[in-house]
């Protein structure tokens, strides 16, 4: 498996829980080339996520707070767009309605978790300096 294959599989599994067919990988790669000029990422956060997939949720949350232009976040967003614009995965992104009681319980819980993750991620990112080797 090449480095790009691993990156695609890691990010896709994180976003939707499975690895999509090869044509999505090709689309992802041409997106990286078109938007970032380079299919290979130069980001300490992404390199760390590739080595330690379990840290990806923290790094994602941390980047949203502290490094909004980080290649890790940008690549996650690109892959989100690609998956969203496909009949296979559209339903993962289309609006979902919840009942009020569920919303009242689920949303605050999710908010608390997300905030905790963001804080932990931000601290983690302090330790992950740009330019640090893999």
């Amino acid at each position: 498996m090449s480095a790009n294959d691993r990156e695609f599989a890691l990010l896709a599994r994180y976003l939707i829980g499975s690895v999509p067919p090869a044509r999505f990988r090709a689309r992802y790669e041409s997106g990286c080339r078109a938007l970032f000029g380079d299919p290979a990422a130069h980001s300490a956060a992404l390199r760390l996520a590739l080595r330690r997939p379990a840290l990806l949720p923290l790094l994602d949350a941390g980047c949203a707070l502290r490094r909004r232009e980080d290649p890790l976040r940008q690549r996650l967003l690109l892959l989100t767009a690609i998956l969203e614009a496909s009949p296979e995965y559209a339903d993962v992104f289309l609006p979902r309605t919840l009942t009020w009681p569920k919303l009242l319980l689920a949303l605050p819980l999710r908010g608390v978790f997300a905030a905790a993750k963001a804080l932990a991620g931000a601290v983690l990112l302090l330790a992950v300096r740009e330019g640090a080797g893999p």
Partner: peptide
């Protein structure tokens, strides 16, 4: 205009934003 544009503006991680914004986007 698709969800990813909202996700991009949110201050949560991408995956968390998808979860929350799907429920709120309507």
């Amino acid at each position: 205009l698709l969800l990813f544009k909202l996700v991009k503006e949110a201050f949560l991680g991408v995956r968390d934003s998808i979860g929350v914004l799907r429920e709120l986007s309507e």
